[in-house]
């Protein structure tokens, strides 16, 4: 992929952003996360560590901000005058938003991150040279850089046996991020291909959604009109490519859908369900 190719690619996208992008998408994987159901238990994060061979960096490096948690639970305290300071936290699981018009993609000098026909932001570890431009350009701060080689420290023998063989173990100098469990997507698609049928809704479940005890995370394909996630997006009036939308009934208690930094027009694929309170 030459530089011209990359630049043309990007300008193509920007031209067509209003019409939903230039891609002939096969799927557009998306999530709907119900924050009213999220109890902040970190099960999703733990599941992600297990599924995606995430390195455990240790306390010191964690404090330096070098943690590798693709899925992190952000905590916010927005209620005043509670008896204990820890009370009243609200949680937000934060992972790569798989933006339709991702800001990380055009800045990569080697095209290691690009948009797949599945509507995901791919990260090809073999191409990555570790320039970290993508991480600096990500408004969500969900890209994680391997500052060290964690293989020895994170999986001392015999713990390397627990590694998932379907995803590579990243080494020093490589950027990584949530992939929406693309190894699972791939195996589901392979299975559907072998059986000559389209991928069905509910077949593909990422590790975080699978482990969520309250089923707060719904995963699916928004190109499939009948999928659970499409219905949720529609119900809460969240649309792709639309970044400022006057919702029909503002006072309706069940119109809770929003996407983070929607106003940046990055077209995230994750919808959160929580009534946005403007009085804080």
């Amino acid at each position: 992929m030459s530089l011209d190719n990359i630049l043309n690619h990007w300008s193509d996208y920007r031209k067509g952003a209003e019409e939903g992008g230039h891609h002939d998408y096969e799927h557009r994987w998306a999530m709907a996360i119900n924050l009213d159901l999220c109890i902040g238990c970190n099960a999703c994060s733990t599941a992600c560590y297990a599924e995606n061979n995430l390195a455990v960096v240790g306390k010191e490096r964690f404090e330096k901000g070098q943690a590798m948690h693709w899925m992190r639970i952000e905590r916010y305290w927005d209620q005043q005058e509670l008896e204990h300071p820890e009370q009243g936290a609200s949680f937000l699981p934060m992972m790569c938003q798989q933006c339709g018009a991702a800001t990380c993609e055009p800045v990569c000098p080697v095209a290691a991150t690009y948009h797949t026909p599945d509507g995901l932001n791919a990260q090809v570890y073999n191409r990555c040279i570790g320039s970290r431009y993508c991480s600096n350009n990500c408004p969500f701060r969900v890209r994680y850089f391997n500052f060290y080689s964690y293989y020895e420290s994170s999986w001392p023998e015999p713990m390397e046996q627990q590694l998932n063989p379907d995803i590579s173990v990243r080494d020093k100098g490589v950027m990584e991020k949530c992939t929406f469990c693309m190894q699972r997507i791939r195996s589901v698609k392979d299975k559907a291909f072998m059986e000559d049928r389209p991928v069905q809704d509910g077949e593909m479940v990422p590790a975080c959604a699978q482990s969520c005890p309250t089923s707060a995370i719904v995963f699916g394909d928004t190109m499939d009109e009948s999928s659970m996630v499409s219905k949720l997006w529609k119900k809460h009036q969240v649309e792709r490519g639309v970044y400022q939308k006057t919702k029909l009934a503002k006072k309706d208690a069940d119109l809770r859908g929003y996407r983070i930094f929607e106003e940046l027009n990055v077209d995230p694929s994750v919808m959160y369900l929580e009534r946005v309170r403007e009085d804080i």
Partner: peptide, 8 residues
């Protein structure tokens, strides 16, 4: 021809 078809 997609990178992610083979690279994991």
């Amino acid at each position: 021809g997609d990178c992610w078809k083979c690279h994991k």
